[in-house]
Design a protein around this nucleic acid. Sequence first.
DNA 1: TTTAATGCAAAAGATTTGCAACATG
DNA 2: CATGTTGCAAATCTTTTGCATTAAA
Lengths: 150, 150
Amino acid sequence: MKIKKKEIEQRMKHFETVCRDEGIKLTHQRIEIFREIAQSGDHPNAEQVFQRTRNRIPTVSLDTIYRTLWLLNDHGLVKTLGASRERNRFDANLNSHHHFVCGDCGFTRDFYSNDLDKIRLPDSVDSYGEIEATHVEVRGVCRKCVEKRR
Amino acid sequence: MKIKKKEIEQRMKHFETVCRDEGIKLTHQRIEIFREIAQSGDHPNAEQVFQRTRNRIPTVSLDTIYRTLWLLNDHGLVKTLGASRERNRFDANLNSHHHFVCGDCGFTRDFYSNDLDKIRLPDSVDSYGEIEATHVEVRGVCRKCVEKRR
DNA sequence: TTTAATGCAAAAGATTTGCAACATG
DNA sequence: CATGTTGCAAATCTTTTGCATTAAA
């Protein structure tokens, strides 16, 4: 999936606006790092962003990639797939179920729903490959963390 | 959320059956490691499984935890949350969208659906905290990997 | 010019591996 | 008893941090 030129330009513009508003300096590195993610339809990890950004800025360093990615994340300019800054977690529940995950502390709980289990996917998904399982991930803030934020 | 005694026993039984069928030795360590995951409603990471298993087997080592977790995963006895054995990935698409992820190679693509965006969650979810976003994750095998498997 | 960001190198953290001792089937 | 599994220690891989230099506003 290629991202349309117009969409990329919009993302870049939004990025620049947010940076200006929040007093984040628009460095050469940050612009190119953000561009790499904004223009890619896959969802690269830090190492991949590093390799791709090096094509444009050969002297960029990996730690700048990390610092920038989390900065962008903290300001809502990018999101992580799965739970953020988390280690791999394991689940022995083999029944069809869904997850609620707290973005602050990682608190995770299962929930069940017959309605959700019947979800119909758009045909376009089939074109990506064979589907094995579908599950809903709800991100939010758990009760404890809601308290803490006050 | 506490897992019911009966459910835990069922999971343990299934675990033992699969191990016997597949010629995996039922060691003290494996049994206790699996039990820890089977009886927990949160979804522990390797370190947490390690700490909890040490209560029962003080001499267990962290590398046995890792080896066992991936063994269980390979035999379908546990699943990982999010994409398995993957590093953090970043996404600059801030529009409401969903993901298809290949379990073999990590290939990931966005897809859109107005129907899915309207998903209604069961009330029980609200009791966990405040909901910020809901998205569907489809796991499967991408076209390339389907080819490779033949 | 002031302040924040970068690159480097080193530290810290997480996961994996080789191998001798040991336990399971 | 044979083989696969464990624990240890060391290696590897990933991410973060301190600090002097550099660049943005």
